[in-house]
């Protein structure tokens, strides 16, 4: 117990230590993000992450958003376990054909209005994998996308910036089910 306390005390709160060049921007982005989250979504944005065919690189960086440096939850953003709890889907990867139906069903299970964010170069335009017998390429080839966050993989700050763009005024959540409703 004492060793744990010692280590914790010695480490301190890294979230607020802001000497690195990135961190000022992190704070600025975070505060702006929180403002939008409050205004538009009533204090919290619930995100369901869906890997639709990624190489796992994007997942590592999305994970990093939860580490003590970025600590996403303090801005009112959190990852939820079910699409039924989600305001937004954060989709990574080119959509593999084997995940196509699962992605459509996840999309259909997410209540309207919903935001669809394509994270990573593959999700934005198919990336290195493109369209093939096994891949549908970009996420927008399968479900409607509101915001794209390019990067291979996007770094945590780029993800934050993208999330901000997703809920900034002007980026209307997709309410129109279009022809994507069912699989």
């Amino acid at each position: 117990m004492f060793r744990i306390l010692k280590q914790s005390l010695k480490t301190g709160v890294v979230t607020e230590a802001a000497p690195a060049t990135d961190d000022a921007e992190l704070e600025r982005l975070g505060i702006e993000l929180r403002r939008h989250v409050h205004a538009r979504l009533g204090r919290s944005l619930a995100i369901r992450q869906v890997d639709a065919g990624s190489c796992n690189g994007c997942e590592l960086e999305i994970h990093a958003l939860n580490n003590p440096y970025y600590d996403l939850e303090r801005f009112g953003l959190h990852f939820v376990a079910s699409p039924r709890h989600a305001d937004a889907l954060l989709v990574t990867g080119p959509v593999s054909r084997h995940m196509e139906t699962a992605l459509r069903r996840t999309w259909a299970a997410t209540p309207i209005p919903k935001l669809i964010i394509a994270a990573g170069t593959c999700a934005c335009d198919g990336g290195e994998f493109g369209v093939s017998y096994a891949s549908r390429g970009a996420v927008e080839n399968v479900i409607p996308v509101d915001v794209k966050i390019p990067g291979c993989p996007p770094a945590p700050l780029e993800l934050l910036r993208g999330l901000l763009a997703a809920i900034a005024p002007g980026a209307a959540p997709s309410a129109d089910p279009g022809d994507h409703q069912n699989d």
Partner: peptide, 10 residues
């Protein structure tokens, strides 16, 4: 097999 992206083919 869900994330099969045809890597060997492409």
């Amino acid at each position: 097999g869900y994330v099969h992206k045809g890597i060997e083919k492409i």
